[in-house]
Design a protein around this nucleic acid. Sequence first.
DNA 1: CTTGGTTTCAAACATCTGTTTGAAAAATTA
DNA 2: TAATTTTTCAAACAGATGTTTGAAACCAAG
Lengths: 215, 215
Amino acid sequence: MAETAKALETSTRILDAAEVLFVEHGFDATSMRMITQSAGVNIAAVNYYFGSKDGLFKAVFERRAEPFARLTLQRLGELESRDTIPTAREITEAFVAGSAELGRDTSLGGLLFVRLMGRTFVEPHPILKESMPRRYGEVTRRYIAAYRRALPHLSEQEVHWRFHFLTSAMFNAFAGNNVLRLFMDQPLVNARDPILIARMLLPFIEAGLNAPAAT
Amino acid sequence: MAETAKALETSTRILDAAEVLFVEHGFDATSMRMITQSAGVNIAAVNYYFGSKDGLFKAVFERRAEPFARLTLQRLGELESRDTIPTAREITEAFVAGSAELGRDTSLGGLLFVRLMGRTFVEPHPILKESMPRRYGEVTRRYIAAYRRALPHLSEQEVHWRFHFLTSAMFNAFAGNNVLRLFMDQPLVNARDPILIARMLLPFIEAGLNAPAAT
DNA sequence: CTTGGTTTCAAACATCTGTTTGAAAAATTA
DNA sequence: TAATTTTTCAAACAGATGTTTGAAACCAAG
């Protein structure tokens, strides 16, 4: 099980197929046979390369986790290297830009990972219980710290609440988890263009963050 | 299979157990045996009363769908029976109050149904493809119409986008699908109290809705 | 060409899935 | 009480699940 060219080829074929299927149908509704069939690979290949279905899921996640964290942190770093305190708008732009950039980069799986995130919030797979805080603990802490500096009129708790709200809105927006798509026969809003989504999101979130504290 | 007292008793026992398990683990990860065991009922009872697992899921949904729609529409109706045009804040209060009231009413399953909704946005079960627009098409149309009157500076599209954002934030907030819970080791925000959630939500959403149109 | 490690493959593994059966038990009606 | 319907139950159904096996195929190095 060394890193030969062949091993890398088939293992990434499995990862690519599994990523799409996990995002589309969820972990439980995606069978080994669906994955291997879609990847054009023998059934035993998954256990050969990843040990188990759980191991494959973890590998699917880990492959995208670091690039996404890097994208998201990079922008914030640039912002904080200036001499002025970043505004809530600027911090949000940095945060949203991370997902938007990912969405345009097909070599990173496009929006698939963001959609996987959106799924994971609702249905957290136990296998990610450890890697999630490890990979995104710092990202979260640094963004919240930046927001706290930008929003001194809010308590720490309330900043956390608003971070909760904005991430819910953002991830679901990029993931296309549209309530209207489900409730109405022909929804007006059905765009998958990351730039448009970001443009619609920003004024909403900016104003929401800057709103006065709850009474 | 008539509506005897016994039939009603065991069928609601099944519904109660299934509701919790579907919300907790999702449709696919919940087996017939988990449901019947939790309900203290024979395996065959589900098929006897609901025909199939799909039929049970639909029944679980249908039981709560109407009360929730009624709660949500009632408040809006009161608002619109006045002689002044409701503000975005008031409309949002009506919308949020529906979920908050449901959350406090254990006889309606509390927040379980809202959490089921949150799941369904991410993972829409085909069995609901028809009942969702039928049950919530009117709710959605009327709320969006009210928002359009309150927000004349926004295009129809943009009102739809913001409705998308606010429902994402709201449902995930009530469902407790907290990003922080997943990303951080000890999240500050972990409340399940519907009143607190509503209080935190309102200023955020109000300001987001009233924000100027996207550039 | 041969050797030794890597990768593929069809077949089978035990276990779990949703569903059905037919008879026993319970409740209702006559 | 007797007849009839409704409800429960253990057992079995066929099919799908993730995983393992052991041999064949492949491949690069000696």
